Amino acid sequence: MLKLKHATYALLATALFYASCSSKSEQAVAPTIANEQLTSAYLKLTNEANPSDTTSCRYRFHLDNNGNVKSTDSTALVLKANSKYDVKVLMLDTTQSPTFVVSDEIKQRQNYHLFFFQPTPISSANLVIGTGSPYIPGTPTSASGPYLNLAIARTDLDSNTPPLQIGLTDLFTTGAASTGNLRFVLRHQPNAKNGTYAPGSTDLDVNFKVTIQ
Rank of each mutant, 00 (worst) to 15 (best):
Y18S: 09
A19F: 04
A19T: 06
A19L: 06
C21I: 13
S22K: 10
S23R: 09
K24I: 11
S25V: 12
A28F: 04
V29S: 07
V29M: 11
A30C: 14
P31R: 05
P31L: 07
T32K: 15
I33L: 14
I33S: 13
N35W: 09
E36M: 13
L38G: 01
S40C: 10
S40R: 15
A41K: 02
Y42Q: 06
Y42F: 15
Y42C: 04
L43Y: 06
L43G: 04
K44W: 07
T46L: 07
T46M: 09
T46V: 15
E48C: 07
E48M: 09
A49H: 08
A49N: 13
N50Q: 14
P51D: 13
S52G: 15
D53S: 15
T54M: 13
T54Y: 09
T55V: 11
S56T: 07
S56L: 12
S56H: 12
C57V: 13
C57Y: 02
R58V: 11
Y59L: 05
Y59W: 12
Y59D: 01
R60S: 09
R60D: 06
F61R: 00
F61S: 01
F61Q: 00
H62P: 00
H62K: 13
L63R: 01
L63W: 02
D64I: 06
D64H: 07
D64L: 08
N65D: 13
N66E: 14
N66T: 14
G67R: 08
G67F: 07
N68V: 03
V69L: 04
V69P: 01
S71W: 10
T72A: 10
T72K: 04
D73Q: 07
A76Y: 06
L77I: 05
L77N: 00
L77Y: 03
L77K: 01
V78Q: 11
L79G: 01
L79C: 07
K80P: 00
K80D: 11
K80T: 08
A81P: 09
N82A: 08
S83R: 08
K84G: 03
Y85H: 03
Y85V: 02
V87K: 02
V87P: 00
K88V: 12
V89C: 01
V89L: 03
L90M: 07
L90I: 10
L90D: 03
L92N: 02
D93W: 01
T95M: 04
Q96M: 11
Q96H: 08
S97Y: 10
S97C: 03
P98I: 03
P98S: 06
T99P: 12
F100Q: 00
F100H: 12
V101S: 08
S103M: 08
S103L: 06
D104H: 11
D104R: 12
E105M: 07
E105P: 00
K107G: 05
Q108S: 12
R109M: 10
R109Q: 12
Q110M: 11
N111A: 08
Y112E: 05
Y112W: 15
H113L: 04
H113G: 08
F115Q: 00
F116A: 02
F117L: 07
Q118T: 03
T120I: 06
P121K: 03
P121G: 03
P121Q: 03
P121E: 03
I122N: 00
I122D: 00
S124K: 14
S124E: 14
S124T: 09
A125R: 11
N126Y: 11
L127H: 05
